[in-house]
């Protein structure tokens, strides 16, 4: 089994599409790091003073009547002094154009969604290609135990997707570090923050693995990559929205809401039904169920 998993990992990573994807992700991290570096500016006393002077000048124009209250309700007279003090208060001026590395956790949450979509696509195309090229027959001539074949593919795909998602987040984080050190700030990076970010990265990678598992399972039944992605899209974009609209009581069972709850790992007022662990376990159970159904179908199917 170990050999079979190794073969499947090699087969996946040797694919041209996967190599192009890795290259694209590397380019994205370089572009992101460079852009953030160029856009990030530390707040200097001179810059702050210039900004406050500009606001003070506006305040003077307001008092002279050049700038009038624009949203006064009809028939209501505003006190001009009060209005100008509220609108143009130089003491309240804050400039923050610097990148805070502490915000990386939010970056991870955003990119994790992207990783989940990629995981689904990678899983679907991995087994979809076997069907479209007919290589599943060749493979079964070497290993006729079908459950082992699909399980090896699943494990190999999961390992590659998990490692890929974690490595991508690490590289992305590393690409943002120069911007934080030289043109931003690194405040707030304590032990809690590191645990928090590591947890988010790992939960995101786990969700990507679950998505790849679902992709493999659907493509194995549909025998086609595009069909698998289409089915997943229809479920997420149509079926879940119908359930949300017509059967709100069943929201607690929806895949994407539970996945979001698991990734964010914070109490959500709009989704109070489940704990982080509970949501993660439910999503994993769904994926395992789909995988088992798919494998049972594959074991009974005539390969023609």
């Amino acid at each position: 089994m170990r050999r079979l998993v190794g073969v499947e990992m090699t087969r996946l990573t040797a694919r041209r599409g996967i190599r192009l994807l890795v290259l694209a992700l590397l380019i994205i991290t370089v572009v992101a790091g460079t852009t953030v570096f160029l856009k990030s500016h530390r707040t200097t006393p001179e810059r702050l003073a210039r900004a406050r002077a500009a606001v003070a000048s506006e305040h003077a124009r307001c008092l002279s009547g050049e700038i009038k209250p624009f949203d006064a309700p009809p028939g209501v007279e505003l006190d001009p002094q009060q209005f100008c003090d509220e609108q143009f208060n130089a003491d309240n001026v804050r400039i923050d154009k610097q990148f805070h590395l502490s915000s990386f956790r939010d970056v991870v949450k955003g990119t994790a969604t992207f990783m989940v979509i990629l995981g689904l696509a990678i899983g679907a195309t991995f087994i979809g290609a076997e069907w479209s090229h007919g290589t599943i027959v060749t493979l079964l001539a070497w290993e006729p135990r079908r459950y082992r074949v699909v399980a090896a593919k699943m494990i190999g795909c999961a390992a590659v997707v998990f490692a890929g998602a974690v490595v991508f987040e690490i590289i992305l984080g590393a690409a943002l570090v120069p911007a934080a050190i030289f043109r931003g700030d690194t405040a707030g990076l304590n032990g809690m923050w590191y645990r928090d970010v590591a947890g988010t990265v790992l939960r995101g990678a786990t969700l990507a693995v679950i998505a790849s598992m679902i992709g493999v399972s659907i493509a194995n039944v549909a025998r086609n990559t595009a069909a698998a992605i289409g089915i997943a899209f229809v479920y997420i974009a149509v079926i879940e929205n119908i359930i949300r609209g017509l059967l709100p009581g069943y929201q607690r069972w929806l895949l994407t809401l539970n996945a979001g709850r698991f990734l964010i790992a914070e109490d959500m007022t709009e989704f109070p039904y489940r704990s982080t662990l509970g949501a993660g376990l439910l999503v994993a159970a769904y994926a395992l169920g789909i995988f088992e159904l798919s494998t049972a179908t594959f074991r009974r199917r005539d390969i023609t």
Partner: peptide, 25 residues
């Protein structure tokens, strides 16, 4: 050893890599 209909191997892999992957099983 068998061939069923047209031999199906990955078109974007080299012949050698295709055989190596099968052989490693």
């Amino acid at each position: 050893g068998s061939i069923v209909e047209t031999p199906a191997l990955f078109p974007t892999f080299s012949g050698k890599l295709n055989l190596q992957l099968l052989g490693r099983i």
